[in-house]
C-alpha cells in the first residue's frame, strides 16, 4: 500500500479545522492540525509533510509570515492558502508570499479536495527526476531544479515556483512540443482563474531570463498553434 500523504492544517477556527480534518482523512490523507503560526513552523520542522493548508489570520504568527518563512527554507514546498480575505489584492499578496494556490472562505468542499489533489499531483510530478542531474546546463547557462536557482543572461537569480515548473516541463521534454493545455494542467492545475494567455506571459518572462534576444528566442521556441518547444543547443 502506498504511503499516505501527510497534510498539515494550520487553522485557528476549531470548527473549520475539525471539518477539514474529517474530510481530508476520509480522502485518505494523514492530517495534523495546529492552531497558530509558531506551532506550524515547529511542526513542519520536526516531521515530513507533503502539503500545508494555511489560514491567513492566525494567532502569534500570521499565515503570510509563515508562508514566507517556509519559502525561505524550501522554495518548492506546496502551500495552499485558505482565507476569508477575498480581494484580488489579498490573493496577489498571498501568492507572492509563496502560496501555490489560494482559496477564499467560504469555499466548496469538492473544490478544496480537487485543489489539494492537484497540488499533490504537481508536487509528485515535480519531484520525479526528469533529468540525469538536478543542475541542468545549456548554452552557458544552468538551472538547478532542486533549489530553483538559475544562471540566466543577467546573472544568477531564483525562479518562482511556477517558473521553475514551466522550465522543468519544457526541459524534461526537450525537443518535443509541449502544448499550452499541458502546461496549464501540470503547472496551474486548471485553476479557474487562469487563461491560456497566462502561459504566454510566463514564457515571455522566462525568455527575458534565458534568451539573448527575447524577441528572437533560440531556446524557448513558439510552435504556432501547438505550444512551446525547448531547444538546448543553439544553431551554429
Amino acid at each position: 500500500m502506498a504511503k499516505k500523504k501527510k497534510i498539515l492544517v494550520v487553522e485557528d477556527e476549531t470548527h473549520l479545522a475539525k471539518g477539514l480534518m474529517f474530510n481530508l482523512e476520509r480522502e485518505g490523507y494523514d492530517i495534523v492540525v495546529v492552531d497558530n503560526g509558531v506551532s506550524a513552523l515547529e511542526t513542519l520542522g520536526g516531521d515530513h509533510f507533503d502539503l500545508v493548508i494555511l489560514d491567513l489570520m492566525l494567532p502569534k504568527l500570521g499565515g503570510l509570515e509563515v508562508a514566507r518563512q517556509i519559502r525561505a527554507g524550501n522554495i518548492r514546498f506546496p502551500i495552499l492558502m485558505l482565507s476569508a480575505k477575498s480581494t484580488d489584492k489579498d490573493r496577489q499578496v498571498g501568492l507572492e508570499a509563496g502560496a501555490d494556490d489560494y482559496l477564499t472562505k467560504p469555499f466548496h468542499l469538492p473544490e478544496l479536495l480537487l485543489r489539494v489533489k492537484g497540488i499533490l499531483r504537481r508536487w509528485e510530478w515535480y519531484k520525479q527526476p526528469a533529468l540525469d542531474q538536478e543542475r541542468f546546463h545549456f548554452d552557458s547557462m544552468w538551472i538547478d531544479f532542486s533549489t530553483g536557482q538559475a544562471l540566466g543572461q543577467g546573472g544568477e537569480f531564483f525562479l518562482t515556483t511556477k517558473e521553475a515548473l514551466v522550465m522543468k516541463l519544457l526541459v524534461g521534454k526537450k525537443g518535443e512540443v509541449v502544448s499550452r493545455e499541458e502546461l496549464l494542467e501540470k503547472v496551474w492545475g486548471y485553476d479557474p482563474g487562469t487563461e491560456t494567455r497566462t502561459v504566454d506571459n510566463f514564457v515571455a518572462r522566462l525568455r527575458k531570463h534565458f534568451e539573448k534576444k527575447p524577441q528572437k528566442p533560440e531556446h524557448i521556441l513558439t510552435v504556432r498553434e501547438k505550444g512551446y518547444q525547448f531547444v538546448a543547443d543553439t544553431p551554429e
Binding site: E13, H15, G19, N23, A84, K85, P106, L109, P110
Partner: peptide
C-alpha cells in the same frame, strides 16, 4: 465581512460534508 465569513465557511463545510460524504 471577515468575521461573518468564518462561521459561514464552517456551516458550508459541514453542510457539504453531509452532502458529499
Amino acid at each position: 465581512s471577515h468575521e461573518l465569513k468564518s462561521p459561514l465557511a464552517s456551516i458550508q463545510l459541514y453542510l457539504e460534508t453531509m452532502k458529499y460524504q
